[in-house]
């Protein structure tokens, strides 16, 4: 089946794509660039650098810009998926949704209206399992956003490796953090993975941080 993936560049959408790619053809990446950093639907840090991931994956990308206003962003998402259906003849959409019924309900409605299948391979997956799967599958990602106590600015840019996963699991018990960031506690960006032909090297970045909330602004990056 030809599928499009709702792609934010983070660990969840990458992992969902890898699972879907085992028995399907991923023909396009669908990315929403929201100017609202607090969007409930779309994750925002480092989104402009998904174009490098698209190049490394060898999968074309359609990017739509949205102001991120609650109902309008859904219309933008509808148009993006409709466009992908027409342009790439996709029969379904894959998402990295884990537990957010807010996101998944809205995507399911759009897919149903357009007669498309909707696949959520990570749906209800325990977050520890997801983190273990990332390590097992050699998915290299970094933290590009934090939004919860006790994350300080040292977390920004940190590689999500086994040491980091251990630390996140400790925070689960001490601070009730969702260890994979399902509650928006962390955002991530994949820099290398089995489906990538080249690794992404970040040569210049800047941290923006205050009061347990921050993001990593990638200023220069390239494929190596």
């Amino acid at each position: 089946m030809n599928l499009g993936i709702l792609f934010s560049g983070g660990k969840d959408s990458y992992l969902a794509m890898e699972m879907a790619a085992e028995s399907n053809e991923i023909t396009c990446l669908l990315t929403i660039n929201s100017s609202n950093q607090d969007s409930w639907m779309f994750h925002t840090p480092a989104i402009e650098w998904t174009k490098l991931q698209s190049k490394s994956l060898g999968i074309p990308q359609i990017i739509y810009n949205t102001k991120g206003i609650q109902d309008e962003e859904l219309e933008d998402l509808f148009e993006l998926i409709k466009n992908a259906k027409n342009k790439f003849s996709i029969e379904g959409i894959v998402t990295g949704a884990l537990a957010s019924t807010y996101q998944s309900t809205r995507i399911q409605k759009i897919c149903n209206d357009l007669g498309l299948w909707c696949f959520n391979p990570l749906w209800q997956m325990p977050q520890e399992t997801l983190l273990e799967k990332l390590l097992e599958n050699n998915v290299e990602s970094i933290i590009t956003g934090v939004a919860a106590e006790p994350f300080d600015d040292s977390w920004l840019g940190r590689a999500i490796n086994s040491e980091c996963v251990n630390d996140l699991m400790k925070l689960k018990s001490s601070y009730r953090i969702n260890p994979a960031g399902e509650g928006g506690e962390i955002e991530s960006f994949v820099i290398n993975a089995p489906l990538f032909s080249k690794k992404i090297e970040i040569s210049q970045s800047r941290k923006h941080y205050s009061n347990y909330s921050g993001r990593l602004e990638i200023m220069e990056a390239s494929l190596i």
Partner: peptide, 15 residues
């Protein structure tokens, strides 16, 4: 029909 859907509808019941 598609095994990819098992992870969404069957595995969570197994969990």
């Amino acid at each position: 029909t598609h095994t990819l859907n098992n992870s969404e509808f069957v595995i969570p019941i197994s969990d």
